[in-house]
Design a protein around this nucleic acid. Structure first.
Lengths: 187, 187
DNA sequence: CGCCGAGTTGAACTGAATCAAGAAACGTGG
DNA sequence: CCACGTTTCTTGATTCAGTTCAACTCGGCG
């Protein structure tokens, strides 16, 4: 759990009390590759922090598997829209590697928000940074070519290339596996 | 300013004191069509609420004008990434119609966050809903056809069609003006 | 009038998707 | 350690959605 708490502290300073409250509300788990953290069609009641390992968020569009998000160690995984709106959503989250994760429930997080102004602030900042990340990806998708997007991923998250199957990276970038394979061949 | 404060209250309840503090920190303005609220290359120091009117966020990619976001009355406008990260950004925000807006500065907002837990909460919720909106648009861009995207816009924000020039709607949807014109002709 | 911006239409072109085979790599059980 | 099937990745041929470039229409307005 240390990795998780350290990550939180780096976003916004927390008092000892708040940290303690956080760790009481969080449960740590070791799970195997392939484990489904969140199932499509249900309300996402947990947010997960990946202490070690790798996960991806995905859904099916016209029968095809689309990878929506990839979370490596040090980042969060959830069906964010469902978690916020409290509505079921089409997204699944699965582990791509055996992982150690920290899970905190919606109800517990709400309680922490209500009890600690400093945690509410932390939450606001976390969502804000999430928004910035998504906006960056959005911009790429908006007006960058397939190759530009792959290059950018190579630069920002090179480790993923070897850990995530090509097809998943392709749909993450919004292109087909074949196209990505060809782009790769050129470079 | 009433429209603004009402919108806030609807997101999360606020005490009289908090509302008063908010209205003291906010300045209301009437501005004409074409006015540039935020200029590319600068740090975005204000967030704007459109009480009446219309704005768009845009930038230049390879010399071409790209509309990133459109904010009608009842919604917010800003260069969100710049506002959060405190870094300059390529986005401009301009008014497409004469508008009445409420502006609140970064510094004032920070002060409100620090002084009022309830406002920090409001901020967290606002960013959360922004994230959900962006995720929805992202999903469209990710794996929906040009026509699907246009249809969805027609259904969710039909009023924009007549208020925003075609070229701006096109780049907002991630397509060219010609393509949008053809899609329109078919329907 | 004639110009100007906004939208439409046409024809040629292109990046990426699709469909279809194969070739590597990988893990599991014999 | 090898043989097997499965999954992952590559490569080729064809098709298609959307772009590009260019010309043309329409309505407004000085």
């Amino acid at each position: 759990m240390k990795v998780f708490l350290d990550a939180l502290k780096q976003i916004s300073p927390l008092s000892e009390k708040a940290i303690e409250a956080f760790s009481e509300m969080t449960k740590e788990e070791e799970l195997s590759k392939g484990h489904l953290l969140i199932k499509a069609g249900t309300v996402c009641n947990y947010i997960y922090f990946i202490e070690a390992g790798l996960s991806r968020t995905f859904y099916y569009k016209d029968g095809k598997d689309v990878t929506d998000w990839i979370s490596a160690e040090g980042s969060f995984a959830a069906s964010v829209v469902s978690f916020i709106t409290r509505q079921p959503d089409i997204r699944n989250v699965e582990l791509l590697e055996p992982s150690r994760i920290c899970a905190i429930s919606y109800a517990n997080l709400e309680k922490l928000y209500a009890d600690y102004h400093e945690i509410e602030r932390l939450g606001r900042l976390l969502v804000s940074y999430g928004l910035v990340q998504l906006q960056n990806r959005f911009d790429d998708l908006h007006f960058a070519s397939a190759q530009e997007r792959y290059m950018k991923l190579m630069n920002t998250q090179p480790s993923l290339i070897n850990r995530v199957p090509l097809g998943m990276i392709a749909s993450y970038l919004g292109i087909t596996q074949e196209t990505l394979s060809r782009i790769r061949a050129k470079v």
